[in-house]
Amino acid sequence: MKRLGTLITTAIVLYAGAMNWMVYERQRSVSSLDRYRAGVTTFLGNELHREQWMGIYRNHKRVGYTGYTIEKMFPVEGVEIQTTMESRMDIDLFGKPQTLDINGSLVLDETMRPLTLYMDVSGSTGSFITISGKREGEHFGVEVRRGNLRLLRVELPLIELHLGNGLVPNLPVSGYKVGDVFEVPCFDPLFMGRAVARVEVLSREVKEVDGVQAEVLILETRFRDITARSWVTPGGELIRQEFGPPLDDLLLRRETRKRSTQRP
């Protein structure tokens, strides 16, 4: 009986030691990540799935929407992060009104490096281009096609990648602090290439959000010579995004998925 007691005590101590060590290790691994990766980890938190939907307005008139989802998945190979992007916008293409649709998905590994990419840019006349990418050794190969015709093939370095929406990218990060600066490579579907988005957290202010006062962080993002100023909650929700020239007539405002995806 006495030995049984010792055995149970040892088992409890080992169990508690193992669990507390795992908590410590998990915390240590998060704090050893760079700010971007740590921000994405806290953005997801206990959730497996998060999304944000924005209405696109030109001169106070709604001209489209853009939606972004991020999902943590657990395949046999390990942890994967799947991001999807969906944008629809009315534009004037060579003086002719067109509706531009961009749909895509990017699958990342645990370290936010890309595994696969697929994007489709289409208009009312059909698909313009299809972009696909996959990991090839120490590179990430990207191929641009129009129908069966290969237009372009590039090899990108295997570093972290974020999926852009054709405008200025919004990072899935929470826990911003004033003074933080992030430089994250983003894939731009319109330019069919990769460019670095530089995000700087300017200030923390109280603004009116959804009719009530809330604390937001003011972010300035520079991407391909365009500057955007965004309101983001401490939890990482993008509330509003205003653009500098040449997109200064555009404005993004947060809305629900239902509102975004319903047909006019």
């Binding site: 409890i12 101590v13 169990y15 508690a16 507390n20 795992m22 206990n46 497996l48 799935h49 657990f74």
Partner: peptide
């Protein structure tokens, strides 16, 4: 609530382990 059973197991086990630690 999010259906993330891995995390439930992890945090629940941490709580249970530390609760049991009081017994000895």
């Amino acid at each position: 609530a999010a259906g993330n059973h891995r995390e439930v197991l992890f945090h629940g086990s941490t709580l249970l382990a530390n609760t049991l630690l009081f017994l000895p």
